[in-house]
């Protein structure tokens, strides 16, 4: 067996808890592609949202401390799966990398750590798949082509906005569609794929998120989607949690499966995918039976 190439991996809190399927499937598909996600030995919560006031260095300390952990591990990059961790760490790295004044201030405060040199860059796993591995390699690895499966990508906010951290065109991204095609599934166009799900408003304005979910789901359904694919544990939670509310309150509402992009890949690769909604599992099985007969 070939030696696996290492990627310095930052999981984030939610992947260690409610979004463990994201990590399980992420590890499995990367291994199938010849990579190992090597978790930082020590890390802390990135803060989930980037602090937007210029004078607030306190909230940069958490993310910068994670950049220091990567530096300590001898790595000049951090790979994330969670899109919120991606955005927070990425924006913090841009905030301090190359800004000596900010670096000096933060380093002086963190007098128990080694100085951060400002050299660690932050990347999302989708960038690695697209730019380093390439869709051809992904396609080569497919053992269970997902032909006939209609996939609605849900990008949410933090992979695409603000512009300076966007991994793709903020208004017309294609990375999830391209991945979908590499897995032989069909990407679906619909109006809400780059919209906000309501994010943390679910804590004290759940009604807002229910309303958002209803619109997002209905649009995806109208466009003929079988499944929604995302890279954000908060989008995943919001869409699945409030969908239960829709099932309860709207007659004949049919639940739409929501999975992480790594789970979709795992289905195509035939590797450990974590928990997959039963309806999707059945659908994938049906597709493959039909293909087998045809």
């Amino acid at each position: 067996m070939n030696k696996l190439e290492k990627l310095t991996y930052f999981p984030g809190c939610t992947l260690k808890d409610t979004a463990s399927d994201f990590e399980i499937s992420g590890m499995a598909v990367m291994e199938a592609l010849g990579y190992v996600l090597e978790e930082l030995e020590r890390w802390n919560c990135c803060g989930t949202v980037f602090s937007l006031t210029d004078d607030d260095l306190m909230h940069q300390i958490g993310p910068v401390r994670d950049l220091i952990r990567a530096q300590e591990a001898g790595s000049e990059e951090i790979i994330t799966l969670c899109s919120m961790c991606y955005a927070t760490l990425k924006r913090s790295s841009l905030f301090v990398n190359g800004n000596q004044e900010r670096l000096d201030k933060i380093n002086a405060f963190m007098n128990k750590e080694i100085d951060y040199e400002g050299k660690v860059s932050v990347h999302h796993l989708l960038e690695v798949l697209r730019d380093r591995i390439g869709w051809e390699k992904v396609e080569e690895r497919v053992t269970n082509p997902l032909e006939g499966l209609s996939v609605a990508p849900f990008y949410g906010c933090t992979l695409l906005r603000p512009q300076e951290i966007a991994i793709d065109d903020p208004d017309a991204p294609t990375v999830l569609q391209d991945l979908t095609q590499a897995l032989w599934a069909t990407p679906i166009d619909y109006a809400y794929s780059v919209e906000c799900c309501g994010a943390y408003q679910v804590v004290d304005h759940r009604d807002v998120v229910i309303e958002r979910t209803h619109r997002i789901m209905s649009a995806a359904r109208r466009a003929g989607a079988d499944v929604i694919v995302t890279s954000c544990p908060l989008c995943h939670f919001n869409l699945s949690d409030t969908q239960k509310e829709l099932v309860r309150t709207i007659p004949d509402y049919e639940e739409m499966p929501i999975i992480y992009f790594t789970q979709l890949m795992a289905l195509g690769f035939g590797v450990e995918a974590g928990k997959i909604p039963a309806s999707l599992k059945a659908k994938v099985k049906r597709l493959q039976t039909v293909k087998g007969e045809g």
């Binding site: 939610t14 602090s51 994010a199 943390y200 004290d204 939670f237 919001n238």
Partner: peptide
């Protein structure tokens, strides 16, 4: 119990 960490941390940060 219902909420993931990511929602709680973000909400507390913002509010």
């Amino acid at each position: 119990r219902r909420l993931p960490q990511i929602a709680i941390v973000a909400s507390f940060r913002k509010k």
